[in-house]
Amino acid sequence: MSWLKQSDVSANHPITLRALEMEDADDRILNEVYGWVNRCATQSAAHDQDYIVTLGTAKLMAGSFARFEVLAAAAIFCGYFTEVMITVEGEKRKAFKLVEEKDLFHMILKADKDWTQQRQRDNRDVAKTGPVRLRDGDACRYCNRTVTWNNDRRSARWGSIDHVVPGEPGTVATMVVCCGECNQRRQNDPLSTWKTLPPPAEPLIGPTTATWLTEKCGIPTKPTYTRTPIEFVSPAPVNGPQATEEPPAVEQPITAAPVEDEVTEATSGLSSDSVASTPDSAVENLEATEQQPAPGIESEIKTDQRSIDEASHGGPGYAGTGRDGSGQVGLGRAGSGAPLPAHHAPAAHLNKPPNPAAHPQPPQGKGKRRRARQRNRKGNPND
């Protein structure tokens, strides 16, 4: 394939700007000479002329014979061209040689182009590459590095077949296995300064080479080594099941657990109806007890009252229902609370029924009349 490279700095190259130094330079000579030489170089590369521009090509690109004379003189003055003699079919002819400047124009030579095509033909010839890879295995003959036969040409371990004698058709004796790094550094090496290592006595042949030799070359081969397979573990997604899984719900009790106390059983039967069923004397004694507490338990009652106030406002240590309501024994807004501890309940003797022998009760309806008669007797001296 024909190939020409024009540098990015060629338009401002010193050779290009030298056109403005001509004595008879005008406003168009700079761009005109640059464009004309560029077209001539393209034709030279397309026809594998190796930087040679024939007079016929130069005159055609100039557009006229008169303009050709002006442009040719300007190109020689600037340094684009030099006049040379070439041999065409045994006849000497005049021509122009384009300067070989990498920052101006660069083209692939015909010999390089032919050599590239020859290497490609040799690498596709399994009659040559098969015995070479069977002999050398998967090791570079220059550095002994293990190679891989894949398409990653940027890797230093990329496997290739190298010609020991560049520029000549390859043979099994002049072709070796080579890694990508050595192939890139060696290039063509016309002086053969790189020396090859001796062929391995026991070549390392991997599964890829063994399969290729067996299927492509018809040489049954078994691998002599196998690389340890590597498994890549994909990381768990951030929003995976373990991230979205909710903890199991904790079942909440409907009512609070009762506080175990010795008086719990005694007070568990007390309700709002208990006061109505209590005899009058017991009620009177209860009112008197509440109004005049005993001196020994006054401080305890005050402390208990503060504890009850804290509990009614959500204080610590109170066994409530966990729902709306006061949580105390008796009527509540919602739910029945846990029974009060022993020191919150009334005195134990107040909950006992009265003793008839110690406190005889007058018959119903007669106590009031008897007390009325006594008052009348005291007020009336005649009675």
Rank of each mutant, 00 (worst) to 15 (best):
N183Y: 06
G130E: 09
R369Y: 02
K368Q: 12
T255V: 11
T214G: 05
S10T: 05
R306D: 14
R377N: 06
A282N: 12
T82H: 04
A11S: 13
E251W: 04
Q252F: 14
P166E: 06
Y142K: 01
V132S: 02
I15W: 05
V233W: 07
Y225V: 12
E251A: 07
S272D: 01
A74V: 01
G35C: 06
G79R: 00
D8F: 03
P363F: 02
G269F: 02
M1I: 04
L104Q: 09
E287A: 12
T208Q: 10
T303Q: 09
R154N: 10
Q374H: 09
P360W: 08
N12L: 13
S44I: 03
T146L: 12
S277V: 13
S336C: 06
L60H: 11
R306H: 11
A294S: 13
T129F: 09
V37Q: 00
D273W: 01
Q364I: 10
T267W: 14
K366S: 15
P356T: 07
A127T: 15
R157Q: 12
G63L: 09
G330K: 05
R157A: 10
N123K: 09
K216R: 14
G159N: 03
I297G: 06
V88W: 00
E265A: 13
G325K: 01
A256N: 05
G90I: 15
